[in-house]
Design a protein around this nucleic acid. Structure first.
Lengths: 144, 144
DNA sequence: ATAATATATGATAATTATTATCATCGGCGG
DNA sequence: CCGCCGATGATAATAATTATCATATATTAT
């Protein structure tokens, strides 16, 4: 079982991109949480000497390099998370009160059913399906 | 079968909010498309004399009044759509090329399976589930 | 019907989020 | 060790969103 940073470094080097300490810090921050983080949360989770301009620039670089992916929810904030080839395929549980987001996984049988469901639904539209995400909304234990 | 505008007006009036021509135009624009629209798209779909400041203000008012809902996508744009009590429960089909979004519906059996799936997955987390959305990504017929 | 009151509107300014620029720094191959 | 190229931080610029305010329009009470 090869470590996360090793995998990321390998991928970046193959693209001619350095795995610097700033980038490592971003990956670490996103690896230590249970769900995607906003730019602000990432800023607070890292060394305060790293300015927003660098955070933004590096996040974008890592998204372009497919190490991170952007996520979308209703609360108008952009969130970043590790790409699925690093973190595994998962879905999201969103608290409608505090807006916290947690990752959840389905067992492979459920996952298969979900994929089938999507295929069926998209059949008529003529789309070539590449991915799917289930977003479940609710109130988290803390907010209840 | 009571009309859309009648339903909206009733709802707004009960909240002490007027259903003005600007607001009516926004609702109409969102009712004529197959998926959620960006602020820009909405601006272009309405009378050009209505300025962005009004569009933004009224969109927000309508979201607050639960007539519209916000959707945030991977392309970093906020999109608006009719709330589900007006448009019916649905999911989204997103083209990863042109970023167009279409609504799709599942048959009730599939919808039920999906709900069950979500419940099961969320069980361990202690959430009180209120809603779910399936987002299917792919390449649309036009972009293929 | 008219005055009084309250909400809506457009124009503009202010704020916030994001991206671009640029001079300097640091790792790496020669 | 030198020179090159990507990376960094500071700052400026741009884009997106929200707030302000004077005016206009609708609604209510008289």
């Amino acid at each position: 079982m090869v470590g996360l940073h090793t995998k990321v470094e390998k991928s970046l080097r193959s693209q001619g991109i350095r795995y610097t300490s700033n980038r490592r810090a971003l990956v670490s921050a996103l690896n230590q949480t249970i769900g995607p983080l906003t730019v602000d949360q990432i800023y607070r989770a890292t060394d305060p000497r790293v300015p927003f301009s660098s955070i933004y620039r590096e996040l974008r670089a890592l998204v372009d390099a497919q190490v991170l992916s952007l996520h979308h929810t209703a609360d108008r904030s952009n969130r970043f998370e590790l790409a699925e080839w690093l973190s595994g395929h998962h879905h999201h549980l969103v608290c409608v009160r505090c807006m916290a987001i947690s990752d959840i996984s389905l067992n492979s049988e459920a996952e298969h059913r979900l994929a089938t469901l999507g295929e069926e639904a998209a059949k008529g539209a003529g789309y070539l399906i590449t991915d799917h995400t289930l977003e479940i909304e609710g109130v988290c234990p803390t907010c209840r």
